[in-house]
Nucleic acid binder design. Structure first.
Lengths: 331, 331
DNA sequence: ATCCGCCTCTGAAACGTTTCATTCCGCGTG
DNA sequence: CACGCGGAATGAAACGTTTCAGAGGCGGAT
């Protein structure tokens, strides 16, 4: 592999000069510069980022670790983060924990070893061993889609309690009394909060709530939950799902069983991913500003790394209900 | 930041011994080992991967660059690749070119500078300047979802011509004579090949083909194309889309305009992403083995890096038609 | 003619590891 | 008792950069 030394020798200059040509072209004489550049081109020299980083002591990349890239919501978060990072000339590497703490731990360890400039983290569980170990590494990080005390770290999140309440209230208002909530794994704060929102909104009403915990937050888990739902009696007339993937799965189960939506079963999802509107029955959903979440998180992180004196901040966005066919009474 | 030197000093041993504790624990006496480990724990030492890599000359990560992470097809490809990489103890960093050559070029440059072990690449255009420059860096790479001559590089792809033909033939067989093909950007080989397949299958038949090029390969572009389609006269009775996102968009446009699917307009998509089956009208689609594509590509890459004598190979999978509601005649 | 300042370029140190030849020590064997 | 051997630890070199103090040369000002 050709290094800076080879370039220096071939161009008849010192390695310092080659480095200058690459990093501070203005300090080297025009003639030398063009000569060195042509040698670089000819030899196909590519600088070694690890040596560069070793010397510099810090890298030019940000780490992003999300819960599930199979969920378009997180893809949008990633897009937002990427945009903000590129604006600062930084690269971002996106990793997927798949909601598994061991995978999360291994990626966090990798980020620390890579001496990444900072990390955007959508954690499986805040109290985790992994996160505690990571914190000791001193790598700055910002939590995404999860609130944290400002004493600990900055965070960018959406008010999940409000979101859950928004959905539940909507179902009440459209006249439902037997309501199911299909939740994801309780280990996720998002899921706990959304459930809390639902309970708060339903408290005091006459509505009867059934809660089902799905195995995951994907379409397949939704199908399973839908099947279980069909078996309950008396059957609820409406179901709110902790995310759109679950809701799409539940919808598939209903359609498959010939249950009319929203006639016999109204459905509300969460995230308002693009596919929600294109579903068999367009889904009512609680919209979160995904891109904005990613962008804001990256900006917060960059601000903190630029000036370590900056205190932590907790930004909380407010979700918004998007009503579509799946809860339209007069269908 | 605490380094190996600090650990050595605190434990009262040489840095060589600390390194041994971390990398070859068996060569160091049990007593020393536990002492050093406890110091490491206490100080929160994390080894510096860039120094490690600089010394070793090669890294432990693979790069994966896909066309569009917003397309679940590529998310599945990534999953497959990740699985294969982890089995070998390697990490994989996934990047998204968004079908933009400049972004692609910048990520390829990053991979080369990082001295990544190898790259899995789903290229925007094979003939590109970016790829040529990258090839010179000597980083091994495998093309994903794009065939290439074995003299150039290994590749793992799906027979897009066959896929296009499969879809077109299906439409012929279900009795359609005015058929539209909504294609993506012609710069993508996948799109050109699928169109070729369509033309081949339709050649000799009485069917009349209209080709529309959508601006992108996403749902929004599909909606636009759908709107254009509604304006053509005589209106086709069936439309085949270069991917499922486009098909979902077209479907939305049809539903929005009150056009019955498949009654007035049959629709076929491509990729068979999970959402295709959950759409307003479940979509007939051409299925590709996405995960397998990713896994095989990673395996090929690893084989090549392990033994540079290994020649290049071109693996081609065969697509498969999945028939659903959107082309069911007797609805 | 001398000196000064500026523009270019050079050479060496430093970054944090890993690796390997070498040293050290204690113990069993002859 | 001397010798050798093996296990354990050490110290230094090397990886490819960047950076910085300093050297060299040249032109203009005094």
């Amino acid at each position: 592999m050709v290094g800076i030394k080879d370039v220096a020798k071939a161009a008849g200059v010192s390695i310092g000069t080659v480095s200058n040509v690459v990093n501070r072209p203005h300090v080297v004489a025009a003639a030398t510069r063009t000569r060195v550049l042509s040698v670089i081109e000819e030899l196909g020299y590519v600088r070694d980022e690890s040596a560069r980083q070793l010397r510099a002591g810090r890298s030019r990349v940000l780490g992003l670790l999300v819960l599930d890239l199979g969920n378009p919501f997180f893809v949008d978060v990633a897009r937002g983060a990427e945009q903000a990072a590129h604006a600062e000339g930084l690269n971002i590497i996106t990793c997927n924990s798949g909601q598994r703490s061991d995978v999360e731990a291994s990626y966090l360890a990798m980020f620390a070893e890579q001496r990444v400039r900072g990390v955007l983290l959508s954690p499986v569980a805040t109290s985790g061993e992994a996160l505690r170990a990571f914190r000791r590494s001193g790598t700055p990080y910002v939590l995404v889609d999860r609130k944290a005390p400002e004493s600990e770290a900055s965070s960018v999140s959406v008010d999940d309690v409000a979101g859950g309440a928004l959905a539940a209230r909507h179902l009440l208002e459209t006249g439902h009394h037997r309501i199911a909530f299909v939740n994801g794994p309780a280990i996720l704060a998002q899921c706990r909060d959304r459930e809390r929102g639902v309970r708060t909104a339903l408290a005091g009403s006459a509505a009867e709530l059934t809660v089902l915990e799905a195995g995951g937050l994907d379409v397949a888990s939704g199908r399973d939950a839908g099947a279980r739902l069909l078996g309950t009696s008396p059957r609820p007339t409406a179901v709110f799902c902790a995310n759109d993937l679950l809701a799409l799965g539940v919808l598939q189960a209903m359609v498959g069983a010939g249950v009319r939506v929203p006639g016999e079963m109204a459905i509300v999802g969460y995230d308002d991913i693009e596919f929600a509107g294109a579903a068999a029955v367009p889904l009512t959903s609680v919209r979160q500003p995904a891109r904005r979440l990613g962008r804001t998180a990256a900006e917060l992180l960059l601000a903190e790394t630029a000036d370590p004196e900056t205190g932590h901040r907790a930004v909380v966005f407010t979700p918004e209900l998007v009503v579509r066919e799946s809860t339209r009474a007069g269908r």
